[in-house]
Write a protein that binds this DNA or RNA. Structure first.
Lengths: 366, 366
DNA sequence: TTGTAGGCGTTATCAT
DNA sequence: ATGATAACGCCTACAA
């Protein structure tokens, strides 16, 4: 071992410094620390045979200690195995938040020769921070797209900032969490929607707020309030309820609104799912729809047009927003800086039959 | 150039043979053929500066000619750029075919240290074959999961077989297209559903078939037919319509059924979306629901419980099916053979209020 | 403008 | 059972 030139451990000659401790740990580090050759480490890591149990344990110990993760690229290059499978599926064009985001991001990636890796989260969750950290490390991503409401989860954004991984947020709240933030005119859209109801003669309009964790909830509510103010309508007590963007909370809030001494003649729900809950509750009470109660939603999800009556709602360009987020992120990654903050996207009010003019002649029974 | 050892072109010493022509073309091949160094090729491919226009063109020509695609792993290993971004998103637990498939496959991958790459398709499409080929090549996947109806698209399966890429099909039709085929008891479930209606006293039961391209469509229809036969009920002419798994076709077919001289008292739709169309059509005609018409669907998608009346339907374990497909595929990739074909999964009938006993006393008006 | 040398971190081969 | 060494295909640094 004397005269033999020490195997040049990759990375060894990097200038030492504060960053050194965070240098990627390689198979050489593990081998050295365990007093074995890299091949033995490789054997252990890949569960190959021909390793003494004692050696295996020792190596595994070091692996844990050093938190060694094999480099996927090197593995693939050398071993010709990508450890990747594909999912080829029919892309139903139906609207769905997650799918729209996916398609938008995928489109931007495809156009630029990038790949997209997924990390679904179940919120709320105590250890998202760790999950995201693991994802970013394992998946070796250059940047990350964070659709609402994840862009507002500090455990996630914190971990990312910590790891210095650039990210783009879709529809986040203020203050904007990312370098790249993509939004749409939620406020303006709800304002229009509410004005539309006012134009139909409604004077008592209830509101069901969205999930407080979503940035969009507050913006939408603002639009509602601004419309009422503009037309000199006060918000009667109890007319605003707190929902959570889901069907059940919409139904519950609708029940509360309809139980009011003077129930509203129209209800603005923070999204379609809650609007569906409102319709359901009204239906259960036998209220003639839309005659007795006008309802509007937000998102134009698939169920909006399937419900009875079909829902008047707002369509956000989520696909484009996601596409833009991914595109700007990739551009930024490639040093093609985007200085100006992205202009918010326009939304489109979709008129259907769930909101009708308040005629004063409320049809009886049916 | 004389004494200089020829640069050992990677792969050169592979035994020549029939496979040789299909060997991966590398940057060396391009360089040699273009009469330049690999660095120049690299410059061209990466759009770097300092390449004479003429040289650039020549290289690009060879690149096209040889169909050279840079090896992503080598690129990443050397350049420390993964050309991959991540999408961290909240995984709404709501049911949705695509999402369920995604989550199932993702789960299996995560558990085995695999990555999942997505390739959404828009069917029908003249050049899916090329798209899939491109995806498989570019994404360098080891295997592919094909959820319905893609497993039945011969352009896709053909391309994959051609490229010798193993794949697993979810809910394909017979004859089974893949080595690994995962199904569920569609026939049995529709049989139960139909028997349920018969048990409620219905004797005239319409059926709206699903998309003919889906293997499940035929199986479900069989279940319906078997139930009628078992109970000695004939299928009156016009009682079976051809739908396409979408809302509009369900609505259209419902109109046809309801226009029959003797319209059915119950309708079995091949999926929830068509069932929603049926409800919508009935609602437009002012038919009291569910009293005047019982409707059942299949899939238990989210809208099933949002509709009025809430839909009696069938829940398939799609998530588990996708998980199993991906798991078996990965196992196979790793040589852990699975000899026995996978047993079909059970489905679960979900009883809600859209189907009610035929009382004989049809409520008038409303 | 173009080319050469060397390294990226792993697996494969073949000795020991 | 274990290890030295050569690929793997590309990019960066530096030389010409």
């Amino acid at each position: 071992m004397g005269a033999m030139p020490a195997p040049q451990k990759p990375g060894t000659k990097l200038a030492p410094g504060p960053e050194t401790s965070r240098r990627k740990v390689t198979i050489f580090d593990v081998a050295e620390r365990a007093g074995v050759s890299i091949k033995t480490v490789s054997r252990v890591v890949n569960n190959e045979a021909n390793v003494r149990e004692k050696t295996r344990e020792k190596v595994l110990g070091v692996v844990r200690e050093l938190q060694y993760k094999p480099n996927a690229a090197a593995r693939e290059l050398s071993g010709r195995r990508s450890r990747t499978i594909g999912l080829v599926y029919e892309n139903a064009e139906e609207f769905n938040y997650t799918n729209a985001v996916l398609n938008g991001a995928l489109g931007a990636c495809e156009a630029r020769g990038y790949s997209l890796l997924l990390c679904p989260l179940n919120l709320p969750n105590p250890d998202i921070g760790e999950r995201v950290r693991g994802f970013a490390t394992q998946a070796r991503v250059e940047g990350i797209v964070l659709p609402a409401p994840v862009g507002d989860v500090v455990e996630v954004t914190g971990a990312l900032k910590d790891m210095r991984i650039p990210f783009a947020a879709i529809a986040p709240r203020d203050p904007l969490p990312a370098e790249i933030n993509i939004g749409c005119k939620d406020e303006q859209a709800t304002f229009s929607l509410t004005e539309y109801l006012i134009g139909q003669g409604h004077r008592s309009i209830g509101y069901i707020k969205g999930h407080p964790e979503h940035g969009a909830s507050a913006k939408r509510f603002s639009g509602y309030r601004r419309a009422l103010e503009k037309h000199g309508l006060a918000i009667a007590p109890g007319l605003v309820r707190q929902g959570y963007f889901d069907f059940d909370s919409g139904k519950t809030c609708a029940a509360e609104l309809l139980d009011l001494p003077e129930p509203p003649t129209a209800i603005v729900a923070g999204n379609d799912d809650m609007a569906a809950g409102v319709l359901f509750e009204a239906r259960e009470r036998g209220l003639p729809l839309p005659g007795r109660l006008s309802v509007v939603g937000f998102d134009d999800t698939r169920i909006a047009s399937r419900l009875w009556p079909p829902l008047t709602t707002v369509r956000q360009p989520i696909l484009q927003m996601a596409e833009t987020a991914a595109r700007l992120l990739i551009d930024r990654l490639n040093g093609e800086a985007t200085d100006a903050p992205q202009e918010p996207f326009d939304c489109e009010v979709v008129i259907r039959e769930s909101a009708v003019p308040l005629t004063g002649i409320v049809p009886a029974g049916c």
